[in-house]
């Protein structure tokens, strides 16, 4: 029985007078990977950033629509945005570890949340780094700078950092586009393991990647959601002509 964890309905986003999203209806199932695909500028990243309200940081942006996250409206006036971002974590395109040690990076969110107990922090660091499939590579140098790691390792430390505050959903904004193919594959393998425990929503430019890891795929075009379905159906038997044109590389 699949459980819907996040429902969005009629999501519209405006930069000033320019409407970038024209009413997106999309639901996300628990413990599944959903991939958002589409050509550059189609609004997939913008939509992703609506989900943890990162667009609030940009001046002149207005977001409307219904967001139902486990029964709560995340855009309600009294909804705690800081709390939301603890439950919906995010990993960015560029690995962005903080300029501090690997250990400090991972336990950062917990420390700020007031956790001081060394044993709790140690355990959280170890669990998160293991879940992000980087524990074996860094377990002997936890006190070294995260900046000294390779790009792929940095990205997995960033995933571990997001996991440490135990979110329900992890948003990934093109997490592998700044990485080499080998590191990308490692991140993909990591994501496949993570969906056992978390719900994953990822934006990707890489169609093969979407086909390899996603349970559901949603195709965006010019601020509209063209179609969303099981990945297999999107790739083998899409309903809309635009989707099949995009999948087969006729544009985008």
């Amino acid at each position: 029985m699949v459980n819907t964890i996040l429902k969005t309905k009629n999501v519209k986003l405006k930069y000033g007078d320019f409407e970038a999203l024209h009413g997106i209806d999309l639901d996300f199932n628990q413990n599944e990977i959903t991939a958002l695909i589409g050509p550059s500028g189609c609004g997939k990243s913008t939509y992703l950033r609506c989900l943890n309200r990162m667009n609030d940081l940009i001046d002149g942006v207005t977001v409307t629509g219904d967001f139902d996250f486990q029964g709560a409206d995340v855009y309600a006036d009294d909804y705690d945005i800081v709390d939301l971002r603890k439950q919906i974590g995010m990993v960015f395109q560029q690995p962005n570890p903080f300029p501090m040690s690997i250990y400090d990076n991972v336990v950062y969110g917990l420390r700020v949340a007031g956790v001081r107990d060394k044993a709790t922090l140690d355990e959280a660091a170890q669990t998160s780094l293991k879940q992000a499939a980087i524990w074996d590579e860094v377990k002997n140098k936890l006190d070294q700078s995260a900046l000294a790691l390779s790009g792929g390792q940095q990205q997995r430390v960033c995933i571990a950092r997001a996991l440490a505050v135990s979110p329900d959903i992890i948003l990934l904004d093109e997490p592998t586009s700044a990485l080499d193919p080998h590191s990308s594959r490692q991140i993909e393998a990591t994501l496949l393991q993570l969906k056992e425990k978390y719900t994953i929503i990822t934006v990707t430019h890489n169609l093969q990647q979407a086909a390899r890891i996603a349970d559901k795929t949603a195709f965006f075009l010019s601020g509209d959601l063209i179609e969303a379905a099981d990945t297999k159906q999107i790739f083998m038997n899409p309903e809309h002509k635009e989707t099949s044109d995009f999948i087969t590389g006729r544009f985008g």
């Binding site: 990162m54 971002r85 974590g89 962005n96 700020v112």
Partner: peptide, 13 residues
């Protein structure tokens, strides 16, 4: 870098 600011905010800080 702004990535650092976004990284912090996205962690719920």
């Amino acid at each position: 870098s702004n990535d650092q600011r976004n990284g912090g905010l996205a962690l719920g800080i």
